[in-house]
């Protein structure tokens, strides 16, 4: 018979809300909003109502110099956004497109089940799409 039981890890155990995740949730880094930036992008996770906005400042070579984000969400989505915002500083848009779910889970330091992975991936989806918009339309976004 096919084994359907999820691995114990996705039950997350006591590990899911480790101190650094709670810290990034309660004191998110790079949290705020600029009046102007190179590109800004917002996305919503309609299933849970979480909504995040990312603002990037990009230099001529396509390197992310600085980042701000704001919005609302669960601990996993806010902590992921906060960790990601630090991670992408100094990275080029090409490098950012290479980030994936393994990278996000490595930043969080936990493995997530499919439902919570959606929370964790919201910020990376937004940042990647923001980069694509910048590459297509240049400064100011669409």
């Amino acid at each position: 018979m096919t084994k359907l039981e999820a691995p114990e890890k996705s039950f997350a155990g006591e590990g899911m809300y480790r101190e650094h995740i709670l810290d990034h949730y309660q004191h998110p880094r790079n949290f705020g909003e600029w009046k102007t930036c190179s590109v800004q992008h917002t996305e919503l996770n309609p299933v849970c109502g979480d909504q995040l906005s990312f603002q990037l400042n990009v230099d001529e070579k396509g390197k992310v110099m600085d980042v701000h984000f704001n919005g609302q969400g669960c601990a996993i989505s806010i902590a992921s956004a906060s960790l990601l915002s630090d991670e992408i500083k100094g990275k080029t848009m090409v490098q950012i497109q290479k980030l994936d779910k393994n990278g996000i889970q490595a930043l969080l330091g936990i493995t997530l089940g499919p439902a919570r992975l959606k929370c964790a991936m919201l910020s990376l989806d937004i940042v990647k799409n923001a980069c694509l918009i910048y590459q297509k339309y240049g400064k100011g976004g669409k």
Binding site: M16, Y17, C48, C74, I76
Partner: peptide, 11 residues
Amino acid sequence: HPHDLASLLNE
């Protein structure tokens, strides 16, 4: 957040 609550209750 309700998602975090559901995760913690799942534990």
